[in-house]
Amino acid sequence: MFNSMAEMVAQAAATNQSLHEVVLRAETAHSDLSRTELRRRMQRRLEVMRHSAEQGITEPVTSLSGISGGNAHRLWNWLQTNQPLTGPILSRSVARAMPVNEVNAGMGCIVATPTAGSAGILPGVLLTLQEAYGFSDDELVNALFTAAGIGTVIVHRAHVSGAAGGCQAETGSAAAMAAGAAVELLGGSPEQSAQAVAITLKNMLGLVCDPVAGLVEVPCVKRNAAGAAQCFVAVDLALAGVESVIPPDEVIDAMASIGRNMDSRFKETAQGGLAATPTGKKLIKLVWEQKS
């Protein structure tokens, strides 16, 4: 669809359209689906995102392995009677990002955005902005098309899987997609959305994928919380007019290069990082002995 952020932004500028409109028009042209059907399908994805986020905060969800779960519910309850240091929008976004991954670990239904391991960031950010600013579902669907376009560029130029590029490729890409979409949702320009993508990814370069026991749980759930935080930092900077010295596409290319050169122990093999700590090794034994 798009080979670069520069191409997306240039097309938006040339046609005086938003990024979501450019993406939607391109998808309509490249698929057999009508504009109405594409929006209907994206609305359905939004509904699944909302359900998975709500499921994990209204009641504790525990993974099948037992090594994660319940923290989103715990945080949400704490927020009802406490003033979080990060403020209401970021804290509630974090609280909505974590349960999606807990639901995933509990074999529930989620939307991979762009992967299961990073699926909480985009819904956590967008659903909280809807709550805070009163955006309609139609506006959130627009934001999801913007995020999809950004994800397409990242897939074309780099990776979105931890096995190929480390966690920078999973939670980094998800946070970048959310940042670009949030900027547009909040009235920013296509160029500002692209800058938010660059700033987010720059701040997450080199992040390794080190799942304890090889499961998408520890540290994945909490990294979605951190990804949401990185997203909001980039959104504020971009909307203020702060730009990345390194252009967005070059940042994506740098992530790809880092991923290619990253040691295999840090690319979803559970052989390095947190997975290789004494506690991580104990959990490997505990989890797989339970399953045998």
Rank of each mutant, 00 (worst) to 15 (best):
A14V: 05
G187D: 14
R265W: 09
Q83C: 03
G273M: 01
V245H: 09
F266G: 11
A169H: 03
L79V: 03
D32Q: 11
D210L: 07
P211W: 05
V153N: 08
G172E: 04
E102W: 07
S161R: 12
P60M: 03
V153M: 08
A116C: 10
L85S: 01
P190H: 11
Q290P: 02
Q43W: 00
G162S: 07
V153K: 05
T36K: 12
G165E: 07
G162M: 09
Q43K: 11
M42R: 04
A256H: 15
V251K: 09
I252A: 08
V100Q: 15
S292Q: 13
I67W: 12
H30F: 04
V208H: 13
A181D: 04
V111Q: 07
R74I: 02
A256M: 13
K281V: 15
P114S: 10
G149W: 08
K267E: 01
H51L: 13
V183M: 09
A175P: 02
A116W: 03
V216T: 09
R260T: 14
G206E: 07
T28N: 05
G227N: 01
T15E: 12
A276F: 04
K291P: 02
S63Y: 01
S91I: 03
W288F: 09
P84A: 06
R25Y: 06
E184G: 13
N3K: 14
A143K: 01
V160R: 02
A29Y: 03
V183K: 10
A226M: 08
A275C: 02
G227P: 05
I199K: 07
R223L: 06
A13F: 01
A158L: 06
I258L: 14
R41Y: 01
T113V: 08
S161M: 13
G70V: 06
D263I: 08
V155N: 08
D249L: 03
R157M: 06
N203S: 15
V233N: 13
S4T: 14
P60K: 08
A226Q: 09
I199N: 06
A256L: 10
D137P: 01
L46W: 09
R25I: 01
D137F: 05
K282V: 06
M1H: 12
R44E: 13
T200D: 04
E102R: 10
G166F: 03
Q290T: 06
N82L: 01
G280R: 08
L144A: 04
C231Y: 00
G70K: 11
G69S: 07
M42W: 04
E21T: 15
S161G: 12
V9F: 03
R40D: 04
R40G: 00
K282I: 09
K267M: 05
Q192P: 10
P211C: 03
